[in-house]
């Protein structure tokens, strides 16, 4: 599975306004709603569920990245939105450090294997120091998308 299979290009936010976890999640879900990836009627429910998941255990797993996610029966196709912050987001990360890259993943309820494959794809990328560095340096949607395509083409080392 590739990042471009499920990351929504039009919803990428290269410069997140939010500096708090809750605001960042709102901003990302709104981007998916604005680009018609997610129905507006689902907005509030999704945000509530994503935040509930975060309260059980932060998905800010360290190294300046967070991967909030939710499975929902009304989500028919897996989709993700990427937000890059220049200022840093207080995400209550495990290492207490600010988060600069947020990948929000929405998965169908009944496809747990697909969800795991997407998480693998996301974390294989985020584990790479160069990917994280370049992502953080990206200030436009196109720059983020170029990086995703390079990652998918296995052109990113280390």
């Amino acid at each position: 599975m590739k990042l471009s299979d499920f990351v929504s290009k039009d919803a990428i936010i290269a410069e997140l306004d939010a500096t708090s976890r809750d605001d960042a999640i709102n901003e990302l879900v709104d981007a998916l709603v604005a680009t018609n990836v997610v129905a507006k009627s689902l907005r509030d429910q999704l945000i509530k569920q994503i935040l509930a998941r975060e309260k059980k255990g932060s998905t800010g797993f360290g190294k300046g990245v967070a991967v909030p996610h939710v499975k929902h029966e009304k989500i028919k196709q897996m989709s993700a939105c990427i937000g890059v912050s220049q200022k840093g987001v207080d995400f209550n990360a495990l290492d207490k450090e600010p988060v600069y890259s947020v990948v929000l993943l929405l998965s169908p309820q009944d496809k747990p294997d697909e969800h795991l494959q997407a998480m693998e794809t996301i974390f294989s990328a985020l584990q790479k120091d160069t990917f994280r560095k370049f992502l953080r340096q990206s200030t436009t949607r196109d720059a983020v998308w170029d990086l995703i395509e390079e990652m998918d083409a296995q052109q990113i080392q280390g």
Binding site: F61, G62, L94, M119, F123, Q127
Partner: peptide
């Protein structure tokens, strides 16, 4: 955790 998730 980041490594473990890549096991899928």
């Amino acid at each position: 955790i980041m490594h473990m998730i890549t096991l899928a």
